[in-house]
Design a protein around this nucleic acid. Structure first.
Lengths: 108, 108
DNA sequence: TCTCTATACCTAGATAGCCTATACATAGGT
DNA sequence: ACCTATGTATAGGCTATCTAGGTATAGAGA
């Protein structure tokens, strides 16, 4: 199996989490996740932008075109109330599953 | 997002781990994972049997038809040396990724 | 005897998520 | 003038998982 860039099913959660601190554009989200994870997690563009479309459709984020500090047009995403709630749900589920996997892996 | 039965990408690892204790047939593997995880993880048959075929093809398990304690024909899977090695790899990778996700999620 | 449940295996097809590859655009530095 | 980093986006492919179905039989209970 090829080394995956991230665990399938966790991307939306990571994006939502990244937006809890402040609105960010796509490029910034990807950089942020990469940096916070010490380069372990890499969000490919072909995964990122479709994911952002999904989140927009679900109403979990909203988007706004602005100018960045480096003087470029970019689409800034902001977490909505629904998005914050969704993030809580996903984190809870994720931790439950990770705990369960941990139990299986730690069996004598 | 619909509640997943398990985290995509972790099934092979769970199966290999389950076989470290003793050979098991498919049905038994599914039951074992479900039980050990306190019913959090459910392996659907449509995921399980294709996964076992993959593992066979990779040479990570071998299979043998036998009769169970309940007097039924069943295919027992045994972990190979290569499978044991692969399991170690997958667990290491998994833990690295989980740690990385943890870092992202725990950011202030 | 008949029926039901649990045990056991398997596959086809749909679905969804992620990746590869590509395209476009521009600010700022050399 | 060119290059790199920044920034957005989509098409197509791949792979793993799930849904839904089929097959078969042991054993319990009516």
């Amino acid at each position: 199996m090829k080394r995956p860039e991230l665990l399938p099913g966790t991307l939306d959660m990571l994006i939502l989490k990244t937006l809890t601190r402040s609105p960010l554009h796509g490029y910034g989200i990807a950089q942020s996740i990469k940096r916070l994870s010490d380069d372990v997690l890499t969000v490919e563009e072909g995964s990122l932008y479709p994911a952002l479309q999904r989140l927009l459709l679900q109403g979990w984020v909203k988007a706004e075109w602005k100018i960045t500090e480096t003087n470029r047009r970019a689409r800034f995403y902001t977490l909505t109330a629904a998005g914050r709630k969704q993030l809580g749900l996903e984190v809870t589920q994720f931790e439950q599953i990770i705990t369960a996997i941990g139990r299986v892996l730690s069996e004598a």
